[in-house]
Amino acid sequence: MVELRIEGLRITQDDFTLVADWALAAGGRVAVIGPSGAGKSTLLNAIAGFFPLTGGRILWDGTRIDTLPAGQRPLSILFQDQNLFPHLTVAQNLGIGLDPALRRVDWQAVDRVLDRVGLTGLGGRRPAQLSGGQQSRAALARALLRARPILLLDEPFAALGPALKSEMLDLVAELAGGALVLMVTHDPNDARHFASQTVLVADGRAEEPQETGDLFAHPPPALAAYLGATYPT
């Protein structure tokens, strides 16, 4: 079975430590939840190659990927912001995902994926000429175009309003297809809405993924503390 395996992972910076040791099957929909500062983003950045590991390995389909440069790992990542180059057009921003030199780009494929995310005909615009929601769609479109088997979402829709955000999550769910999606969120509703499994990050550990429903029905103390006493279960 193809899976993303996090093996004895250890990340340290100053007095911050995060450990994780588990695996996720290909094609899953996984939320990463926990208090702020616990290391949710750090975990995703480590998988993506922007945070050095102090120990452990990361494997995809049995092959070690934590030694690869960020751009050569079998994944796409959407950051909280700065997902598009402001000086390139939307189409170029997408095409750069296929060929960083923008020389061998299948521009028809770019147009097709723009259609799929609802940005038909906007390829010639610059990011600043798009609304916030449209910018998110463009960034997502590039991830779809790259068609890597893992998609990491580091709260890319956090700046959108609630309605737009859930619209984007629906779009991800609809379009991500066979990709394994890991999504950082601090909103339990997002997790329940989107993810069948959830990883809780708290107290220096990224816990083993659990069924999202189970986790929220019987929250461990760290999650209960994060959610607060009034959280309706």
Partner: peptide, 12 residues
């Protein structure tokens, strides 16, 4: 980070 995640480097 965006450039690195897209493998954009060198002359490109």
């Amino acid at each position: 980070r965006l450039a690195a995640s897209l493998d954009l480097r060198g002359w490109a």
